[in-house]
Amino acid sequence: MSAARATERLIADESELISRILSGERNLYYDLIAPYEHMVYICAFSVLRNETDAEDVAQDAFLKAYENLAEFKGESKFSSWLTRIALNTAKLRRRKFRPELYQSLHQSISEEDGEYIPQSLGDWREIPSETLERQEVRALLADAVRRLPDIYRDVFVLRDVQNLNIAATAEILGVSEGVVKTRLLRARLHLRDWLMPLLKSSRVFSRQAFKRGTNPWL
């Protein structure tokens, strides 16, 4: 089945599920949201950088989606609609309860239209996959993502963490594909500049070399 066909099928299945939930088969809501638990959690975690808050917000977002299910018109994918709810719920929570997280720690970050000059940091060709076994490295990565300004982080999380394509990312965020590409580039450059010196110093590398030119998603 082609990807487009599979998407059509998924949308049809979800529409059917939603109709039945709204008709009273409420327990089907678990089936509807099961594929998206991780996605909603990541959206919340990337904003809040705290497991407890993120789980709480994810639960609220699923609840909010349930309470507003009748308003979902099927003009976008259910996953896009749910992602928007998750991101908005997380940002509201952050403003309300964790204002200290509202200020990016990287205030020197360039404006979107400005020019960004990547730092010269030397080579880093090995993929340090073993470093992920260490909790502090995972925390470092998540913290760096959380510290990106919203406009960059939202794009980065949807595209590079959730692995959505450019079109889906643009649809969820309500911006053009060109804007997504510009913000994605900026987010990637910033993260590379922040993280590379920290991760290189961890000195726990795999010797598996990255073959330049290969797509990381394949």
Partner: peptide, 18 residues
């Protein structure tokens, strides 16, 4: 720069990170 960005993407996309 290309290698660094690629490595960052591989790491954040790893299911253990999030």
């Amino acid at each position: 720069i290309v290698d660094g960005i690629h490595n960052i993407i591989v790491l954040v996309a790893d299911e253990r990170t999030f």
